[in-house]
Design a protein around this nucleic acid. Sequence first.
RNA 1: GCGCCUGUAGCUCAGCUGGAUAGAGCAACUGCCUUCUAAGCAGUGGGUCAGGAGUUCGAAUCUCUUCAGGCGCGCCA
Length: 579
Amino acid sequence: MIEILNAEILGFLSNLEDVDEEYLKIIDKKSTTSITDDLKNGHLTSNICMIVASQLKLNPKKLSSDLANKLDSLGIFKKVESAGPGFINVTLKREDFLSTLRIINQQKEKFGESILNSNQKVQIEFVSANPTGPLHVGHGRGAAYGDALARILSATGSNVEKEYYVNDAGRQIDILTASVIMKMHESDNSFFPQNAYKGKYIEDLGKKIEEKDNFNLIIDKSILDNLPKDPEKEIDEIISYLKNHYQANWKTVKDFSLKSIIKDIKNDLRNFNVEFNNWFYESSLGSLDDSKSEISVSINRLEENKQAYKKDGAIWLNTEDSGDDKHRVLVRDDGRATYFASDVAYHKNKIDRGFDEIINIWGADHHGYIKRIESSIEGLGSKKEKLIVKLVQFANLYKDGSKVKMSTRSGEFYSLNDLIEDIGSDAARFYYLSKQADQHLDFDIDLAKSDSKENIFYYIQYAHARIFSLEEKYKGLKSSKNIKKFNLSNIDYIKCDKLIHEISKYPGIVIKSALTYQPHLIIFYLRDLSQIFHSYYNDNHILSEEKDNQEFIINCMSSVRQIISNGLNLLGITPMQKM
RNA sequence: GCGCCUGUAGCUCAGCUGGAUAGAGCAACUGCCUUCUAAGCAGUGGGUCAGGAGUUCGAAUCUCUUCAGGCGCGCCA
């Protein structure tokens, strides 16, 4: 109906003096025709008269009243009024108002889907935690956000591919390998490097490897005694010693540890209801030694495009055009590529795969990194607009009233898996998504477990469960399985109107959530919908209503349940049938 | 110093492509379970939307500025 209304409004405006088509297009963009917040203002509302009036120096009140009269006379709507400073408020005919119920009944779990982004090929890369240990609660937020976003964009017609970038190359993997080896030998020489990873999983990895390959590796005492004091230099020295003296063992430990950790990460994500379509390995980008590798090709092209240059023995990327504050090193003076170089090659690879939109979900601490990646994309001759970086802020975890400390290096942290075991995947996802991703989140585990109204997760689930149970009871009562169609226009029962009005907003919420990349909008909508439902449910005893109304009411209730179910699905949460 | 984010009720937060009296929940107080799930509902009180200036018919929303907080500024990844 909004489209019809808009078309009529534009028709009216085009007949005004001083209005040309160009202008109408601008108006069309700036104005909003939407579902009203409150039923007292009718069903639909438009602010268009105020916008037109301000541009053309007309009286908004007069214009809106003219337009209202015109629209009213068409007979399409039940009532059209001019209100307030110049709003157009439209009351729909009963059957149009109720038509949403019929649509939900037809579309069921598809209700809310649209073709907003039809055929957009979108990639979302998220989590991408270094495979040096288990996922912690910080990663959980990125996982929940990325996955929900993927679901929402899919619902609006995009063809979405979810990808995890595995940093299986570089120094942190060396540190991991050295950590495992040194842990295995800690008891022999009572020494463990300051900067090595320390979690229990390191010990477990060592034990598994010892069970599998009974390898014997002796570390020279004199080496350990002469290590540098600086933690960074100390670990580097150990790495180079182990690599040089125990090449085969090094590879065994490295491969096993990586494989094992990645397997655990996949498993944790599966428990969190997140499945990736693609796992992209940094190592597949190749090395600089191979002139045909993706990483070499990228750097060569940047040089050809005069974006990269040699200076002080290193290769630099000019990133200043895109507003970065300094140039960035791609290849170090010792000939090794930087992490940034890999990332440039990775983004080149993404672009080559032909996505219309590439979404990166990064921790907020990486925000300074955006400009230089954009710059590299431009440098390679592509458009940086294809890249959309969404930042996810840290989540502070609170348990028993105090902050849970987290430190990856020390290995003492509350893992994502701990969280899932503690409160369940659904509640965890819900709370991760309950606030805008780019803002700090205080995650209160006690609240997530509490059974009060403050716990919105249960509040929404409770609405769903109540309706589910009601439907079961109703079916038993009628002993008829399907709710048959009826003539909506004859229903004069109005107590559900507030609910129906709220229901009709759902498709718009999904679209807005997709356009703004904000899953939390769905949560707040579901809470409002649940609130209206609970209120109605308390005031009315449905199963003792008159038969004529009962069927209609159950239909409304089913629609509410369907929407809660659909909405939770977009967040990757399973609705509860019983509580 | 530079960049990004934030500041709304005592607390936790919605609302931000400008629109109608600024909304929820918690906490405080008062009611509602012999009937479909009380993990619920109804009500009362609570606000200089951090401060200031600007843009305009209209600003929590946009611009500038001040203050306060968080994060980031490696030839680390």
